[in-house]
Design a protein around this nucleic acid. Sequence first.
DNA 1: CACTCATTCCTTTTT
DNA 2: GGAATGAGTG
Length: 801
Amino acid sequence: MHTEVELAGTDGTTRDDGGVFDGLTEAQARAVRHTEGPLLVLAGPGSGKTRVITRRVAHLVRCGIPPWQILALTFTNKAAAEMRQRVLGLLGEGAAARGLTVTTFHALCARLLRRWADVAGLPGLKPDFAIFDSADQAALMKKTIEGLNLSTGNWPPRSVLARIGEAKNDLQDAEAFAARQHDFAGRTVAKIYRAYQNALRAAGGADFDDLLVLTAKMLRENAAVRRACRERWQYLLIDEYQDTNRAQFVIASLLAGDGRDGRPPNICAVGDPDQSIYGWRGADISNILDFEKAFPGAEVIALGENFRSTRTIIDAADAMIRRNTRRRHKTLFTGNPRGERIDAVSCRDEHHEARVVLEWLRARRAEGLAWKDMAVFYRTNALSRVVEDELRDAGVPYVVARGTAYFQREEIKNAVAYLRVVANPADDVSLDRVVNTPARGIGDATLEKLRTVAADRGAPLFDVLRDLASGGAASLGVALTARAQNAVTKFVRTIDNWRDAAKPGAFMGADTPGDYETGALAELVERVVRESGLEAMYRAGRTETDEERLANLAELVTSAREFEETFDPGADPVLTDPRAAAAGERRTPPDVLTMLHAYLERVTLVADADSVDPAQGAVTLMTLHAAKGLEFGAVAMVGLEERILPHARVAEMPDELEEERRLCFVGITRAMKRLLMTDARYRSFRGVAERQIASRFLAELPPDLVRHTDQSGEEFGAGVGALERPDPTGASARAVGKPARARAGGRALAEGALVRHPQFGVGRVESVTTGQGARARIRFRDVGVKTLVLEYARLEMIDEG
DNA sequence: CACTCATTCCTTTTT
DNA sequence: GGAATGAGTG
């Protein structure tokens, strides 16, 4: 990266020793200068937070602190990468920063656990544990609930997981949780909690929450581990401190110490209580509100001056956020010009809203702003689709910030599941996914028998498969066809072959002394993609999506290669001795299995926000949550309606209103120059148009700062959206889109007709049903056959056929 | 055992 | 509007 350019361009600084203080305000400089003892930096939006953090790290190093004694923690990989990049820019890429640890909470915990799990007395957790993401968690939870003969209808896996997650964030293990439950529902959840943890450990897994909880437990209960960590990291810096939960607070406190050993807690927490938006995930805003209670004698520095936005935007944001009660007073102000008023437009429905947003963005473009300097924010992901359609139809380039999307794709999940089984054959969840994908004759009936054996033995399923492969069905006491047995044997061989290839000291099956060769991991990934049959499976399909899938699999190999190339054992907090790393000493190179673990860790811990890349020349679409920490010249916020922002949940949980207001505050303060906020009078949820009320937050903005136009009564362009335009009265909205006969674009639809779908493109109708919920089966030229509900599918008639 | 078709449910936000 | 699940057929 061009760190030098960036450095000179944004700061005007040089590499001179005094450079770290150049261009800083008095308050910023104080925060940089403070090195010993607890420090809390209350950094308002656009107050130069990142700059302060990076300068502070550079200053510490300049003061003679060895870089490997510094630990900087963030919440996202992107934030970590950015911070590292900027620090390196200040210090130079060379040895000056070697050993500096900049990472996320979750990644740090994963590493610490791998390093010490077996010595720290964490029952059942093996160092090669797999990290279970939310999809894995849900799958395992479903199995667990069914295993207890409970119904997933009464005990929805997602809500049970949410409850257990809350308990975990509060550091209650299954026993502690059980002790607090007195009613039937609570006791049942406690039972599920215990069973879930057992299943998780049996599968050699740890979920996201476990990473934090177990690390907190380990640091608390194991003095040796605690000492080792404290010895290594003497200076602790935590970004977005307002988002820390109880477990993270405990980890931070234990790493910082309480000063009783004669060393002051050198913890620097940076954050803004007004931007705390992860309360639902267990983040505890009291951590930052009561920082001085936890760390007596802490210095507190408020950065209230905003360098990002116009005065209008800052004044509006400040007026709104002042209504919150749970906050630390901090006046927002800016020396920037007043700028334009905020645009607020009331629209007729979501399609009209999308059109309004499009035209507004075009106007900004006409004023000379680049697409990449514009963004659209929304409260829920579901709101993005209509905007996407509009931008796509208009030919406006856009990207949706969905970093996890790539790894959620079926083909990638499959390939990753194979890799996870290679890394850890006990991972039953991943094994379930791949054992018969692609179909290889190991069907449900066969698996059911083998699962029973595994359950009886209390062993992972793969062990049973392996025994079957070597000893035959009779040895397990089950009856299986020879065909099934052969299929299993072949599968086990395949997996074991890969494992052998990845074993320490082995290189693609052959023993290779000496260094780890870059490319070995990518080669393993490539082999898995090919030999698993996944490649052949997607190659067999000839549709465009199959081609896309093949391309994605190829991309996975590339990503593994890139990972290898950028992997730096010296930067790893626990793999190598930091002093040795700092001295540039060569260490034992990692084996392929170690690399595989590290790679899977990386793959599992990606977040949506990680994928935001403003370098592309496109409008960025994202949730308000993902927007935190970013800035754009022009921002459009859609869906400013009651039950959306603030979210409907507030009706039941009034306490959450303040967090919704903070979310709105975060959105507003991302805008540098121009801001548009829209609401729609009618909006469709699950296909039903509902009457909407403008958000109370709009009314909280000082009227003189806003230019409001009400277009909700106006007519707008007919055409594509005509079918589902709701009736203005709302009462008969459903009737409008439900003609007795199947129609598209107002014309009768019959077999053989040629139609266009806004997303799927051109297709021919194969069959059609009439009446309530009329559907048409359409063969699309590009995406294959789809069955669409005519009421919702915005079909355009090309030829009646 | 694999594939196709129909029904159900869905909706916060994410490491 | 669509994904995920479940029933039924070849």
